[in-house]
Amino acid sequence: MSDSEIWGRFKAGDSDALNLIYADYSKKLYLFGLKLTPNHTIVEDSIQDLFSDLVRNRRKLGDTDNILFYLLKSFKRRLVRQLQKEKRYNFKNMSEDFVFNITYSIEHEIIQKENTIFKLQSLHQAINQLTPRQKEAVYLRFTEELEYKEMAEIMEMSIEACRNLICKAIKSLKDALQGDTSILLFILRKLV
């Protein structure tokens, strides 16, 4: 069943469709929420609010052909609002103030090949040095696999700016991977 079909059924009051949507996406929202705040309770409350509202207003909802995107967008807005309330003051440009916090893994299989270890360390470092906005963009693009158009809406910026954010992030990672090894050795020496 396609996303728009499931969504249509949900709007029509089909409880199986709600089950399906909740089972498929609640975990993803939870994980995304934890990237914006370490506070589990706020994340849980926002998930409950989001779904309760969806259920209450199901008839009035718009259509979507990408449920994940639809939910992420609304979820992020709620969560950020909640986080603002918690801090009791307003941010002018709030998005920058919420740290997009991710821990990355490096594939085991690749690590085992000896001569790539140096490269990997610098890649890993470069990933961790991405800005929170870059991390968020990269997460939406390469983990949630959204389109630029959808990312742009969630991040509240233009499609072009989104594309630039990703391009810049990718370039810095590539530079780290293909970069000058003498700098790398320098970094490594400092670490030892």
Partner: peptide, 27 residues
């Protein structure tokens, strides 16, 4: 390939029981 794979985050454990309770409330 390496960069795309490295960009996959380590995801935290999601407490499924909590999500189940939330679902009850949603219903």
């Amino acid at each position: 390939i390496l960069i795309i794979k490295s960009l996959q985050p380590i995801q935290q454990e999601v407490p499924q029981e909590k999500l189940d309770v939330i679902f009850q409330k949603v219903q």
